[in-house]
């Protein structure tokens, strides 16, 4: 395996008329990574993926896949990627096997090879039962698998999936997610999504894009660490609300608090510390000195959702 990164993007910009859909994107994806490309609707995910898959050119900047430029060496790039566009478009009038064979042949596989590969991906994507059915009659989950099987059929080095679990119910989402995990063992996968749990569960690294620019990128742990400055402390105390309110207001390290009623005389307080202080010992001391009953004291880990909201909010405030 060579050392060139799978995806190298430098200052990639795409303008539609005067509006920049993607601005000055720079990132690298190493071989073997599963990278989540996270952003709200309209953040520029699909545009970026279309440029990477050689469907449309960039206004400026360069993108290389496996060392090949997506504009000048498009055919080399296309041979190496399996791309599933947003909405997973398929020829609905074709049968599953027929469609996969058609796609395999289109991607340059020989007759024998395409037959073998179609057998393998049919098996891999759990399409054995429906191989002879017309795609239009299949349910959303199966169609998604057909799209994925198509992306895999020519053994690409890089798989680009644009919103692979869009419009699927929870059960199917889980099945498709597992499938992505299975196929990603020996490949690089680049997934876009606006769903946070999706990325959190499948990806090793996350790139957060907002309004066409990268806001944050790193592994989930790295992002957690970056965010730890704002980690909240949850405390459940048996005390009257005014007392609690007064106590938190007096505590200098608490930047923001939120009190909600729990069962009995308990109240649940979420405390946001100032400047990354760990509030737990102070809360404990307080409870001890006031003689309040304390039944829970935890520091929350940030979910990707918090990170995402935080990152995109910062952008909005700056903007």
């Amino acid at each position: 395996m060579s050392a060139t990164p799978m995806i190298e993007v430098e200052n990639l910009t795409k303008r539609y008329g005067g509006r920049a859909a993607v601005r000055d994107l720079t990132f690298t994806v190493q071989r073997g990574e599963i990278v989540g490309f996270l952003g709200q609707n309209g953040a520029g995910k699909t545009t970026t993926m279309r440029m990477l898959s050689c469907f449309m050119p960039a206004t400026s900047g360069t993108a290389r896949v496996a060392g090949f430029d997506v504009f000048t060496q498009a055919d080399e790039v296309r041979r190496r990627i399996g791309y599933m566009p947003e909405g997973n478009p398929l020829h609905l009038e074709m049968r599953v096997r027929e469609y996969l064979k058609f796609r395999a042949r289109l991607k340059g596989l020989s007759v024998g090879r395409s037959r073998d590969r179609v057998d393998i991906v049919t098996e891999q994507c759990g399409l054995g039962d429906v191989a002879n059915k017309v795609i239009g009659t299949l349910s959303g989950g199966y169609r998604q698998r057909v799209g994925l099987a198509d992306a895999l059929v020519h053994e690409p080095e890089l798989i680009i999936l644009d919103e692979p679990t869009k419009n699927l119910d929870a059960h199917l989402t889980r099945a498709v997610r597992q499938l992505i995990k299975d196929v990603s063992k020996d490949r690089t996968v680049f997934i876009s999504s606006h769903l946070l749990p999706e990325v959190e569960l499948t990806c090793t690294r996350v790139i957060i894009i907002h309004q066409g620019a990268i806001r944050e990128s790193g592994t989930l742990d790295e992002l957690q660490r970056k965010m730890s400055a704002g980690q909240q402390v949850i405390a459940e105390l048996a005390a009257p609300v005014p007392d609690l309110r007064e106590a938190w207001e007096r505590m200098a390290e608490v930047e923001h608090f939120d009190i909600s009623a729990a069962e009995g005389s308990f109240h649940r307080c979420s405390l946001t510390p100032r400047a990354g202080v760990d509030l737990r010992s102070q809360v404990f001391e307080l409870a001890k000195s006031r003689g309040w009953q304390l039944r829970e004291l935890t520091r929350t880990r940030h979910s990707l959702e918090d990170i995402f909201v935080h990152v995109t909010k910062r952008e909005q405030e700056e903007g």
């Binding site: 898959s53 050689c54 296309r78 791309y83 566009p85 909405g87 478009p89 289109l106």
Partner: peptide, 14 residues
């Protein structure tokens, strides 16, 4: 319209 144009045009076909 159906979007298959995108899957077609991202295969190594001129």
């Amino acid at each position: 319209y159906s979007g298959t144009y995108e899957t077609l045009m991202t295969t190594p076909v001129g």
